[in-house]
Nucleic acid binder design. Structure first.
Lengths: 142, 142
DNA sequence: CCAAATCATGGGAGATCTAAATGATGGGTA
DNA sequence: TACCCATCATTTAGATCTCCCATGATTTGG
């Protein structure tokens, strides 16, 4: 008859939020030491992995709000890591592309992100990580 | 020799972030419809589950920044859901306690949070949820 | 040619993080 | 005892990140 009703600690969503918060902190600290934002990584990685895209499509790929992508791209463009060019077939669109400078930065960030990921997942075996990935993947779909 | 290097989609941390984002959205929408903030739930649930606490201890329990707790408690106190009283044994501290009104609100919010959680976890069996909880719990520790 | 849909952008709100100021406590030392 | 000081708790202020709503420009479809 254990009556210790714990709304938080024993709930999947609570642990999900805590683990995610932990990860965000690890990644942000790691990248902040190199004076870059985690948002840069999402943008550059998506462009490098899946190619150029209009802002709206890019935002959807990395689950960003379209309006928030604007200022991130402003910065990345100012730093020379991406370029925006108007799509000739639809002048509403800006096609975003990664530059050589951006690809260099991405490689540097990869090191840091991998290191942070390794630290987060350290308590789990390879098999457990695979299980976790599979379970989480089935939740994420919209 | 598959050369499709996907930095994002196949990574545990990516799916972790996506799943958490999905959950945050579900919970916030559900609670926003009732004109309450998700922060209220964390505070009230922790006080109800684990008892009164000083602000710093409470913040640690729910992974809040101590400075952010201030305005949340201001609101909750203004609404009559919690009370702050100076700890007689250490007058630096404010002991925070939930009120009857706060407990009533918590019960209402519980309905909404459970509904949102059910929707999130719907794709998983009970055993899978248990596995997921166990794996996540081992990541969350600081 | 007009109405609806799409794209990029701006503004405001909620949530979290950092840095730093203020109040209060406790301990050591003259 | 009386004073100094390191430490802790609360608070303020500012920045970042994400979400939501609105608007202007452009394109598409009827």
């Amino acid at each position: 008859m254990k009556s210790s009703q714990h709304r938080l600690g024993d709930r999947v969503v609570w642990q999900l939020a805590r683990a995610s918060q932990h990860w965000q902190r690890l990644a942000r600290r790691e990248l902040a030491a190199a004076n870059v934002r985690t948002q840069y990584y999402h943008v550059l990685a998506s462009l490098a992995d899946d190619g150029d895209a209009a802002q709206a499509a890019l935002a959807d790929r990395i689950s960003f709000d379209r309006s928030d992508l604007v200022s991130v791209l402003d910065e990345l463009e100012r730093l020379g890591h991406v370029v925006r060019r108007t799509d000739p077939t639809d002048r509403r669109r800006n096609i975003v592309a990664i530059t050589e400078s951006g690809e260099k930065l991405l490689i540097e960030m990869d090191q840091l992100v991998y290191a942070a990921e390794a630290r987060l997942l350290e308590p789990l075996t390879a098999a457990e990580r695979k299980t976790l990935l599979a379970l989480l993947s089935r939740l994420a779909q919209d």
